[in-house]
């Protein structure tokens, strides 16, 4: 049981990092990124590329985390002048383009066959690394949230024109947020690759993006605690329903579908009765006179 708890904590921590990355983009800045799986995949493929080409682990991490923000900037530049609806479509498409490219270009990390990556045999170490990464990204996001930059990003989220009238270039700040948050997701991808020991295109389907979105929206996209809580709820719902399924003694295929239905029911209930998420963004008051 201990190993299973360690595995669950590791999973929650990695997915929470992805959630915090999305929190910075969507919760704080208002960027609707439907391709959140892309920086995650880039990070993992950095590790896969290193493994296939005989490079050390740190080189794979460097490649993954270095390429993730670069690709983010490349995606955002042509989409920068578009409204958020189109931004969602562009990022969704970019994620799929990357996955299909990895599927068809075998020279990078095995193509359709995927690539074996050095697996972290010590599961406790994997959990500690995931928790360290989560703590680091949470602290960074917290500092960012509380900084003048964070306040400006909120203005950007509410009204880009208003931000522009304050003499700020919205695209510049969107680029900064994208680069920073995609590094986080890239790091999560590198760690994920070494936790599972294998990288393949099917690990980075669109559905993974929506698992992250579900967690973020469920917990509350505007708070870090909400994102972590949402991720824990989503992941633990998946895990706990396995035990309920086992004890129910119903036919396995029925139970499998009921599991997903139960998962969906939890989400629908939250969206109906708590649309702002479990932990909504607190209202903040600033005393202008004290400045």
């Amino acid at each position: 049981m201990t190993d299973f708890i360690i595995f669950s904590v590791t999973t929650i921590a990695i997915w929470s990092v992805l959630g915090i990355s999305l929190h910075l983009q969507f919760g704080l800045t208002g960027l609707v990124n439907f391709g959140q799986v892309l920086p995650f995949a880039v990070g993992a493929y950095g590790a896969g590329f290193a493994a296939v080409h005989g490079l050390p682990i740190w080189a794979g991490a460097l490649i993954g985390c270095g390429l993730a923000p670069l690709i983010g900037v490349l995606v955002i530049l042509p989409a920068g002048r578009l409204t958020q609806d189109y931004w969602a479509l562009v990022t969704l498409g970019a994620g799929e383009i990357f996955r299909l490219a990895m599927l068809n270009i075998s020279g990078i990390a095995g193509g359709v066959e995927g690539a074996s990556v050095v697996r972290l045999g010590d599961r406790t170490l994997a959990m500690v690394l995931a928790l360290v990464l989560l703590t680091g990204t949470a602290l960074f996001a917290f500092r960012m949230d509380r900084s003048p930059l964070g306040r400006l990003l909120r203005v950007l989220r509410e009204d880009e024109t208003l931000a522009a009238t304050l003499g700020r270039n919205p695209l510049r700040f969107q680029l900064v947020v994208t680069a920073v948050s995609w590094v986080m997701a890239g790091l999560a991808g590198v760690l994920y690759a070494h936790v599972t020991g294998y990288v393949s295109p099917s690990s980075f389907m669109v559905i993974e993006t929506f698992v992250i979105w579900t967690a973020v929206v469920l917990g509350g996209p505007n708070t870090i605690a909400g994102v972590v809580l949402g991720t824990a709820v989503v992941q633990l719902t998946g895990v706990s329903t396995r035990f309920i399924a086992q004890w129910s003694h119903l036919p396995s295929e029925l139970v499998a579908n009921l599991r997903l239905a139960a998962f969906g029911a939890v989400l629908v209930l939250v969206f109906l009765f708590r649309p702002q998420g479990v932990i909504p963004e607190p209202k903040r008051r600033y005393n202008a006179d004290s400045r």
């Binding site: 190993d3 595995f7 294998y198 389907m205 396995r242 396995s252």
Partner: peptide, 24 residues
């Protein structure tokens, strides 16, 4: 028999296998 769903997703497959090996 303890039947687990892998959802045809590597992540869910690992979760299922971890439960089977470590809990069951």
């Amino acid at each position: 028999l303890i039947v687990e769903d892998s959802e045809y997703r590597p992540q869910a497959g690992i979760e299922a296998a971890t439960k089977l090996f470590d809990v069951n």
